[in-house]
Design a protein around this nucleic acid. Structure first.
Lengths: 305, 305
DNA sequence: CCATAGAAATACAAAAATGAATATCTAATG
DNA sequence: CATTAGATATTCATTTTTGTATTTCTATGG
């Protein structure tokens, strides 16, 4: 029996279709189909019921899927263990961050990093959803909440602050709010309705009233642009908003939303020299940038004028 | 990472060489070598130290071998589970037996079997060493001792009796022994020095004296032929020796060595319809043949004459 | 009842893995 | 010190696997 077929078997069972499994496995749909077929021949058993909407496990398939999943976990552990044992300072490290840190902040630091580690390549993965560190979708993740899962090593590094911002022109037209109550007369640039966002986001929205939400997006960059374009008041990351000349902070003493920044890595790969190098570098860089992350630097504009 | 590489990895770690692993995996030696190489590339880690006498695990290899072994166990369980779920009365059933039963006794029964189950193929494996039912080296094993291992279903069916036999010409030349003491003046056709044989074999040998052992072999058939050729007195299976006109039993009331016959199957595959069919057929056939297996049928020759 | 979208099957050319034969290496042995 | 046994590397023709492009299928919605 070919073990690779079992890997495909898990992927098809998980995703429910050959095409989706092929995507996950980085092979073509006909290949997955043929390998499942071959596995069924080898085991002399039908594992899936083919429907026009995909594949469902047969009773025999149900019998063995748990065992195959366990194999998958062990295979993933093997990959991580091998990575962890690698003490070379070369190769690629994949790090996953939220937009606010990954688009501009981290890339700005990388020239310093590459001077120190010329043979390391950093692969930046911008991701709103948490990537699965167990599946090695990334080596390191930067998360805005303490991770609960076992087998993960996490270090709280800094805080990421968010404030309310609007464009100058918007504030000229609609007036500067002086209290929280004033917000009900203003327009809001909001997040999309993903239920995984923290409650604070929904609470904030209610201050504006439902018909005063002009724009929703899952992209922080999109929110900044929308706010800068004068669509309304957005809850933006101070790091980026403070540096944006088009934006002005609103109710700075009243509204200040704080998220903890956690650096996370899987225990198994935490021993890898190159992963440690990136982990520590990013951690130190975050610590050094505390004022910007906390939005406590006076806006350039206000000092200029 | 290609899971098949992990399978090769276990085989090489187990056997200590590419060539031996290739044999076990039914592929060529260069293929195993290339796959190990590929696995090392994928994991970016050396797994083996190459020596001219084979391959030894590196520390990294040691770290992951246990996980890979667990994968192998699960893969084997999957194969057995799938086999066990198969309720078709077609395909192949592999059965492993000692020479005494597998060379002639079972084949004689097969024409009846094939009438009842025309689509089943029986693959007879003659084996002195116990095959590994967990690895599916056979579906069913006939053993001469109660199996201890968990996960095996065993049924005691009958007894296999052994007696002392010699050729007529030998007994004419050396005389008929009347007591155990007489054996010390006789020659012995013995087993080879495999330490896994039961103590009774060694005890018997000592009755003849060390320089009176003329012939050693690990083959029961070889012992029968040697005894029939007049080399000496052999401890032979009654089933075959009684049917052999050239042989005559010696000290029938004094020497009678008995082994239990156990039919063994792995729990996981015991539910398979075709495996049950063979299991029950062989069990019943053994029961029906109790007199021959116990050597209690008078020799044809003696009734003929 | 027809059109459509999402999925699986098919055909064939291209790419990769495999095996047979062979060369090469090294520790052990006389 | 040469020989040998037992192992790994190498080469190349062959076989197998894979991907692309296309066709086929079927439940769903108009």
């Amino acid at each position: 029996m070919d073990w690779s077929g079992l890997r495909d078997f898990v992927a098809v069972a998980d995703t429910g279709s050959l095409s989706a499994a092929a995507l996950r496995l980085n092979v073509s749909q006909p290949t997955v189909g043929r390998r499942i077929e071959q596995l069924e021949t080898e085991l002399k058993a039908k594992l899936f019921i083919r429907t026009p909407r995909g594949l469902t496990l047969t009773p025999t398939g149900e019998n063995i899927i748990e065992l195959a999943r366990r194999m998958e976990e062990e295979a993933l552990t093997i990959e991580r263990t091998a990575t962890g044992a690698n003490q070379q300072l070369e190769g690629t490290v994949r790090i996953s961050l939220v937009e606010d840190l990954g688009i501009e902040w981290l890339p700005d630091k990388l020239s310093i990093f590459h001077e120190r580690y010329p043979n390391l390549i950093i692969d930046i993965n911008i991701n709103n959803k948490n990537v699965n560190l167990l599946r090695r979708e990334a080596d390191i993740a930067v998360r805005l909440a303490r991770p609960r899962q076992a087998d993960l090593v996490a270090r709280k590094v800094e805080e990421l602050h968010f404030g309310l911002y609007a464009s100058h022109s918007y504030l000229e037209r609609h007036g500067q709010p002086k209290t929280v109550r004033d917000l009900s007369r203003h327009y809001h640039v909001g997040f999309d309705e993903d239920p995984t966002y923290p409650d604070a986001i929904r609470k904030l929205e209610r201050l504006f009233g439902p018909d005063h939400i002009r724009h929703r997006t899952n992209s922080h960059l999109g929110q900044i642009e929308a706010s800068a374009a004068g669509l309304g008041i957005g809850a933006l990351c101070c790091l980026r908003a403070d540096a944006d000349q088009r934006l002005q902070r609103v109710l700075p003493d009243i509204f200040n939303y704080v998220r903890e920044i956690w650096l996370v890595v899987h225990t198994d790969i935490s021993h890898s020299a190159r992963v440690r190098a990136v982990f520590n570098f990013v951690g130190d860089a975050l610590s050094e940038d505390a004022p910007r992350l906390r939005g406590t630097i006076e806006k350039l504009k206000s000092t200029d004028e």
